[in-house]
Simulated scan of single mutants.
Amino acid sequence: MDRVDKAVNKAVNQAVSDLGSYIRAQRNNAQISLRQLAKLAGVSNPYLSQVERGLRKPSAEILQQIANGLRISAEALYVQAGILERRESGPVVDAILADQELSERQKQVLLDIYASFRRERETAADGDTEQPEE
């Protein structure tokens, strides 16, 4: 194995470990036992334990189930797992992502609409070269 392969493996292992630590922290914050989360997510206790210890990298589907069990945004887990890029944040984005009454699809639609409004506003501001009348 050459140096590049070792570096890549090390980076992947660190990302998996970070994901497991993040899931464990979210579970502890929610005051849910490993057994309870495993049941809510539809996975076995040993499997979830291995995920939390960074020994397994769950699929996007399992991450969705874990997120549902934790009542957090699946997007947060996808970003942590490296499946999605970190999204621009701000009070509106954070509020949408934190709203537990919205489904993941509803959140995504709202974020897409909000982003399009922001782009439209930026484009209009960039194209506005006229000086305001005094």
Rank of each mutant, 00 (worst) to 15 (best):
V43E: 03
Y78Q: 00
S33E: 04
A95M: 10
Q100R: 14
Q65L: 06
V93W: 08
E133L: 08
Y78D: 04
S103K: 12
Y22N: 08
E75V: 07
S44L: 04
A125Q: 15
E101I: 02
A30G: 01
A98D: 15
V92I: 09
P91E: 14
Y47C: 02
I66H: 06
L63G: 02
Y78M: 07
S103W: 11
D112C: 09
G82Q: 02
P91C: 02
G42T: 06
D2P: 01
Y22A: 07
V8R: 08
L63F: 00
A125P: 10
A30W: 05
L37E: 03
S59T: 09
Q80W: 05
R27C: 12
R71N: 15
G42Q: 08
L97F: 03
D128T: 12
R53C: 10
V92W: 05
I113M: 05
P58Q: 04
A76D: 14
K107R: 15
Q31G: 05
D94W: 04
G69H: 04
A81M: 05
I83D: 08
V12S: 13
I72W: 01
G20T: 05
N13L: 11
F117M: 14
G90C: 13
E61N: 01
Y47K: 00
L63D: 02
N29A: 12
V4F: 09
A38Y: 00
S49W: 03
M1V: 09
R86H: 14
S116P: 07
